[in-house]
């Protein structure tokens, strides 16, 4: 039986929801609506000329090989970033959960990267890995690695994935650690008494019980990789070399704000919006089924 709690007055719930709805309307529905509107027009930046072009902006994207490259780049980038950030965050949380001394120090130190602004993080990584002046790059080259993210797409991709994942690890770490600490010790002890080693306990007890946290983090990390990594890519590779790190969001920015092509940029935003809606629906329908909120 589900308990139903109802409000006595009809207007109160709307009043309570009001502020949130207002924020959503102003910061989401209005700009999103405007993007959809602009995607049907070809306009000059200052708005002097606006020509209705129907679906031409979309058509232009869908016949452009660069756009498909960008989709592929985004999938690779988001997949790798999510995987790297989740795995590292999880491993660190497992170790921090076991640490006996200095837990507070480890926890605080691990949370720092999250507080660094993406542009600053990007600048930091480029100072380490730029082939002509990066200190770590110098080491790599001295070791005989032909390190050149300015011309080698795979190197550039590695660099932005590591930089983007690095920034997100802290967030994942905090949630995984909280999740781990919420698992009753008695369950783990029971498994240990039944003869399960640390590996088996992790696999059969801890990971299934963590699934709500993991699912939440997958959704958050994919959204992060899609949207919030713009600053890092901007600072580290600028989408290069030859489009190798030109993700969909970065392309929206360059087309809209550097090239002043509002129509093309809006059309890309609309497509991106649908991709993310589709991804979220997929995640909830197929992955969430395997999550137990015990």
């Amino acid at each position: 039986m589900i308990k139903r709690v109802t409000f006595a007055s009809k207007s109160l719930p709307y009043l309570l929801l009001g502020p949130q709805l207002l924020i959503l309307a102003v910061f989401f529905f209005w700009p999103a609506g405007k993007a959809i509107y602009e995607s049907f027009f070809l306009s000059d930046p200052f708005g002097a000329t606006q020509i209705f072009v129907g679906l031409e902006n979309f058509q232009m994207l869908l016949v452009s090989p660069e756009y498909y490259d960008s989709i592929l780049v985004t999938l690779v980038f988001s997949g790798l970033t999510t995987l790297a950030a989740l795995l590292s965050g999880f491993v660190m949380a497992v170790f921090a959960d076991r640490a006996i001394r200095g837990v507070l120090v480890f926890k605080s130190a691990l949370i720092w990267p999250y507080a660094v602004a993406p542009a600053v993080a990007g600048a930091l990584w480029i100072f380490l890995f730029h082939p002509t002046f990066g200190s770590v790059a110098g080491l790599l080259i001295a070791l005989g690695v032909d390190w050149d993210p300015l011309l080698n797409g795979a190197h550039a991709m590695t660099l932005v994935v590591v930089a983007a994942a690095w920034k997100q690890i802290s967030y994942n770490f905090v949630f995984f650690l909280a999740g781990l600490q919420a698992i009753p010790k008695s369950l783990i002890e029971a498994a240990a008494i039944d003869g399960a080693g640390p590996g088996k306990r992790l696999w059969y007890v801890v990971i299934p019980l963590l699934s709500p946290t993991t699912f939440f983090l997958i959704v958050i990390n994919i959204v992060y990789a899609f949207f919030d990594t713009f600053g890092i890519i901007h600072a580290v590779t600028g989408g290069g070399p030859a489009g190798a790190t030109n993700t969909l969001v970065f392309k929206v920015y360059t087309d809209g704000f550097e090239n002043q092509d509002l129509g093309a940029s809006s059309a890309q935003s609309v497509i991106l919006m649908f991709i993310v809606i589709a991804l979220t629906v997929l995640q909830f329908r197929y992955i969430e089924r395997r999550v137990s909120y015990a």
Partner: peptide, 16 residues
Amino acid sequence: VQNTEILNEELENIWA
């Protein structure tokens, strides 16, 4: 600006 970036991309393809 965009056309400059396009040529930058293609020159990177050439150098690489």
